[in-house]
Structures are given as C-alpha cells and as structure tokens.
Simulated assay, not measured.
Amino acid sequence: MAIPKIGSAEWVETQIRHYLATGDYDGFFVGWAGEALNITASRATQQLRAALIADTLLRARDFDHPSSMPEPIEPWLRDKLKPMVYGLFSAVEREVVLRTLVGGIVFLTPSNIVQVLTRERWLSTAWKLANIYLESLGATPLRKESARVVGMSQDTTCYVSLTYFRDTDPFADYVVHEAAHVLHNCRRAAIGLAERRNCPNPLDIAFGKRETFAYACEAYSQILLSAPGEAARQAALSRHQEYGLPPDERVDHDEYMAILADAIQARNGWRRIRERCAR
C-alpha cells in the first residue's frame, strides 16, 4: 500500500486516525497546511478536535443515560468538601479554598461533553477525557485497552465520570481524593490566598506522601460520614482493612492505617493527617 504524500488529504486522514486511536499527534504539526506555525497549529488542532468530538458523539449515540448527579450539584459538592477544607484551613482561608475546589469539579455528562472537549487546551487531555466519558456510558472507547478510571485532574480542575455515583466501595471517594491533591499541587496565589515564603502551595505535603495524604483524606471523609463516635470509627477502620486498602504501590499500608488510626482519635483528624504527611 502506497504511503500518502505528506500534506495530502489522504495523509491528513492518517494523522487524524492515528490521533483518534492513540491520543498521540505531532505537536509541531509538520506537514499540515498553513502559512505560519501558529496558523498551521491552529488549523490542525481544530481538525483533530473536530474529529475527536464527532467520533465521541457517534460512539455515545446509543448510550446516553439519565444523569445520576444530585441537582443542584454545587451545594452537594460544598457539603462533600466542606469537612476537609474546614479541618485543614483557618477561618480566613476556608471560603477561598472551598470555592476553588467546588468550582474545579467537572462531571462528564452528555450535556457538557462537547463543551469540555472544545475548551480543553491540550488535545492529549481531551482524548483521555473522551475515553473516560465513553467508558462511563458503556460505549466503546477510542483506546484499545480500557483503563477504567473514574476521572483525571489538571491544575485545579478535576474531571469526574458518572461512574463515581455507581461506586460501591464504602471507603472510596474520588472527588475528595482529587480535591486533596489540588491542595498541594496548585499555588496559593493562583487561587487567591496570601503567599507564604516557606510554602507556595496551600498545603506543604511531602512529595513521597502525596498519595498517602489523598487516600487518607478520602477514607477519613467516608469514615466520618458513616460512623459517628470514636467506637464506631474504630469499627469502620477495621472494616476498611478487611474490605481492601488502596491498590497503589506508592502507599505504605502500615503507615496509612497508622495515620487513619491517629486521625480518628484526634479532635481534628484532618489536621493530624496533614501533620503526618507534611514535608
């Protein structure tokens, strides 16, 4: 089979098919039409993005399910994230942090997927989001192997699929987990907090304990929600160990359980988690 000439319509089609199948593309857009690099990049990006949106909608056409999201979603998210934010931050900073986290949660739904894929700056990220969305519907994803992920985060934005609401793990909460990551990833000044010379992030979490911190926040939030009182929380922690600990090699399970045990006995367990994971 003859190789299409670079720049030809057939060659462009091969580039589009490659992107749709893998999420990969030439960021320099060599061979694409255009008088200057910025014009070439803009046109090529538009073509790839349009193809991604069209293919995503085609694959999802017969799989649109009614949304299982609470309505309205903002008050629900505030209630979900408020305990963590209030436990980790001072009264002066709480509302700024909570507003940032709530505003950064984006659930991928049939009503907003086109807007999400259109506005996402990076084509590689848009491709990943399309796959997460398709898998949440039960549709055939673009990639060959299913990743079965609930969502992904970028900067202060956390994209979440509707499979979040179908998770049956009583100690899992992807929204809290990813919100916890935002607290050590973003810059204080970027979200409206006063800068601190010794800590540019809202929380100073040790690099090697960031996943431990996020998983501990996730589990602790669920324990608080389901088990009022220290005795009930101790019982919940025991069930957590039996049910299954984080399937992440970056998390030391003994340390993780010790942090949670410390947290459920403390007056402010959130602060104890932060202290145990601090740099």
Score class of each variant (00 low, 15 high):
143 R>W: 07
167 D>Q: 04
229 G>Y: 08
148 R>N: 14
222 Q>P: 02
199 C>R: 15
189 A>D: 15
223 I>Q: 03
164 Y>A: 10
189 A>G: 08
164 Y>C: 07
186 C>A: 12
228 P>K: 08
164 Y>H: 13
224 L>V: 08
211 E>N: 06
227 A>Y: 00
183 L>I: 10
149 V>D: 05
206 A>E: 13
180 A>N: 01
225 L>N: 04
218 E>Q: 15
186 C>N: 03
211 E>Y: 07
145 E>R: 15
210 R>S: 00
233 R>Y: 09
189 A>P: 00
221 S>G: 08
174 Y>G: 03
223 I>H: 04
211 E>I: 01
140 T>W: 04
139 A>T: 07
176 V>L: 11
226 S>T: 09
151 G>E: 10
222 Q>F: 00
168 T>N: 06
160 V>P: 04
159 Y>E: 04
141 P>C: 09
223 I>R: 04
197 R>D: 09
162 L>C: 06
157 T>K: 12
179 A>M: 08
233 R>S: 12
191 I>Q: 03
201 N>G: 01
167 D>E: 14
210 R>K: 13
160 V>D: 00
202 P>C: 00
190 A>G: 04
223 I>D: 10
229 G>Q: 11
169 D>L: 02
215 Y>K: 08
166 R>F: 04
145 E>M: 13
216 A>T: 06
172 A>Q: 12
189 A>W: 00
232 A>H: 09
153 S>Q: 14
174 Y>K: 03
214 A>G: 05
212 T>E: 14
203 L>A: 04
210 R>M: 09
171 F>V: 07
147 A>H: 13
197 R>N: 03
142 L>E: 09
227 A>E: 06
200 P>Y: 07
196 R>E: 15
199 C>M: 14
160 V>R: 10
234 Q>S: 11
151 G>S: 14
201 N>K: 06
169 D>E: 06
205 I>E: 06
193 L>I: 10
184 H>M: 12
215 Y>R: 06
222 Q>Y: 02
188 R>N: 03
180 A>D: 02
187 R>S: 14
215 Y>I: 05
210 R>E: 12
148 R>H: 13
189 A>R: 15
164 Y>I: 03
140 T>Q: 14
227 A>N: 05
200 P>A: 11
172 A>T: 03
171 F>N: 05
216 A>D: 01
231 A>R: 13
210 R>Q: 15
215 Y>D: 05
228 P>I: 12
204 D>V: 00
162 L>E: 14
174 Y>W: 05
199 C>D: 15
183 L>D: 04
175 V>M: 09
174 Y>H: 14
181 H>V: 01
185 N>I: 00
157 T>H: 07
196 R>Y: 06
222 Q>K: 15
153 S>F: 00
183 L>A: 05
155 D>E: 13
218 E>I: 01
187 R>N: 10
207 F>S: 07
204 D>L: 13
203 L>D: 01
163 T>C: 01
178 E>H: 07
202 P>Y: 05
225 L>A: 15
168 T>I: 10
